[in-house]
Design a protein around this nucleic acid. Structure first.
Length: 420
RNA sequence: GGAGAAGUGGCCGAGUUGGUUUAAGGCGUUAGUUUCGAAAACUAAUAUACGAAUAAAUUUCGUAUCGGGGGUUCAAAUCCCCCUUUCUCCGCCA
């Protein structure tokens, strides 16, 4: 959420930011509503002030045993009716204002490329040359009998998968390897609920704008699309001491996404499932450090791909491609040998104070003042997509798949071979 | 699922026959006095948000906030309703 005062004082800048995002938001309407809100609240407060002083007079009469005059009573009655009338108008306008404000996206950082073209930062690792035609991961997985999409769709529908045999161990190995690697870099491991309330969803920015993209359960609970939601909300309505920052968390969770509006996209395989595993990194930092914290966050995510020896590239997302909440995002895209493309495997974002303002997370400075801190997060990295990338990049001519060196102590085997 | 109890400032805790309570008191924190310095003692300060005024403010004034929302009333921490969380007991269950 942006500060409405900031919007008012920097209208041109904010308007330009929205143009750069290619999003149309009626900021004038928002400011007009806020003007009305201010006028009404001023009126209401003046009336209340008057009512309070008059009302206290009655209190005094009561104590001394006198009876308040008829004029005083009717005067107060008039005040009450007026207050109620304005109060009703005020609530309506406040709701509208809040709702609009929650739908204004973050302002892209000045270093974000304007337009729809992302900027390639660098390529790391060279895609392997195969002496045969490399297959796509779902073919490999089905042949090795470690993935089953058919039975999964019987049980749940499309975009689900069943892991079998060595596939289960590989998935677990990846998760544990990610967690251990990040913990060694000072991230605290945490496990949080997969079901969260509406307030949490508003806090991280999924609601109200993207409500259709998550699964809703009964009792007003929602399945998390990413651990970011539950982990970041840990500090909702909390004031943190400056000295404990940066506070860094790593969290494994299953994630659930509706994937509405993606019909026909990535219908096969592990790329776009309704349920998938992810290890997420979340940071709470001092505002003045968030830029460098983003760089080190990207580094921590990259480290995983380097250790796994998977070729990847780093993209700086453009103003039209960064998410609603983000001010600056780097995507890591891993090489998929099967169809010879780079695909997103991690998204690393600096939200600055956008989420903190929604969640009311503050930092207490040494001079005792309080201000919103900055939040960041990154996938560190997507587990299912790593699984898929390993199958595609480590496949052998005979149909077997080698296990990357660093994962072998976790899996307990070096290779997955065809059964017959 | 059923029954009961509770939720008050950074923390503890009083206040529930509605009105000098402007939420007592204590602890903690900060500053000052004292001291070579510290402790102790004494004195003072000690929330957040929003709004108005002013050239501006860390200024002045106002409004709201006692788990959340709604209601009754001239007036609600206090009365009524709904929700929520915690605790205790019973039942059911992986």
């Amino acid at each position: 959420m942006l500060d409405i005062k900031f919007i008012r004082e920097n209208l041109k800048k904010v308007k330009q930011a929205m143009l750069n995002r290619n999003i149309s938001i009626d900021l004038e309407k928002l400011l007009n509503l806020d003007d009305k809100r201010k006028i009404l609240i001023t009126k209401i407060e003046q009336l209340r002030s008057k009512r309070n002083t008059e009302s206290k007079k009655i209190g005094k009469y009561k104590i001394t045993g006198k009876k308040p005059s008829q004029e005083l009573l009717s005067e107060i009655n008039k005040l009450r009716n007026k207050i109620q009338k304005y109060q009703k108008q005020f609530l309506e306008i406040k709701n509208q204002t809040d709702n609009l404000l929650l739908r204004v996206p973050n302002i892209p950082d000045e270093n974000v490329p304007i337009g729809k073209n992302n900027k390639i930062i660098k390529f790391i690792g060279k895609p392997k040359k195969f002496s045969f035609h490399p297959k796509q991961h779902w073919e490999i997985g089905e042949q090795l009998d470690i993935l089953d999409f058919i039975v999964a769709s019987k049980i749940s529908g499309s975009r689900f998968v069943i892991l079998k045999n060595e596939g289960c161990a590989l998935e677990r190995a990846i998760i544990n390897f990610f967690l251990d690697t990040h913990k060694a870099k000072g991230y605290k491991e945490i496990m949080t609920p997969y079901l969260v309330n509406q307030t949490s969803m508003i806090g991280t920015g999924q609601f109200p704008e993207f409500e259709e993209e998550v699964f809703k359960c009964s009792n007003e609970l929602y399945l998390i699309p990413t651990a970011e939601v539950s982990v970041t909300n840990i500090y909702r309505d909390v004031v943190l001491e400056e000295s404990i920052l940066p506070e860094k968390y790593v969290s494994y969770s299953a994630c659930f996404r509706r994937e509405s509006g993606t019909y026909g996209k990535d219908t096969r395989g592990l790329i776009r499932n309704h349920q998938f595993n992810k290890v997420e990194l979340v940071k709470f930092v001092k505002p003045e450090t968030s830029n460098e914290e983003l760089e080190s966050l990207v580094n921590d995510a990259e480290n995983i791909l380097k250790l796994l020896n998977l070729p990847y590239r780093v993209m700086l997302l453009s103003t039209e491609d960064i998410s609603f909440t983000s001010s600056k995002t780097y995507d890591l895209e891993v090489w998929f040998a099967g169809n010879a493309t780079y695909r997103e495997i991690s998204s690393c974002s600096n939200f600055k104070d956008f989420q903190a303002r929604r969640m009311n997370i503050k930092i207490k400075l040494q001079n005792k003042k309080k201000e919103f801190l900055h939040t960041l997060n990154a996938s560190g990295v997507a587990v299912g997509r790593t699984f898929a990338a390993i199958l595609e990049n480590y496949q052998q001519k005979d149909g077997s798949v080698l296990i990357p060196e660093v994962l072998r102590k976790y899996t307990g085997f070096d290779i997955i071979s065809p059964k017959f």
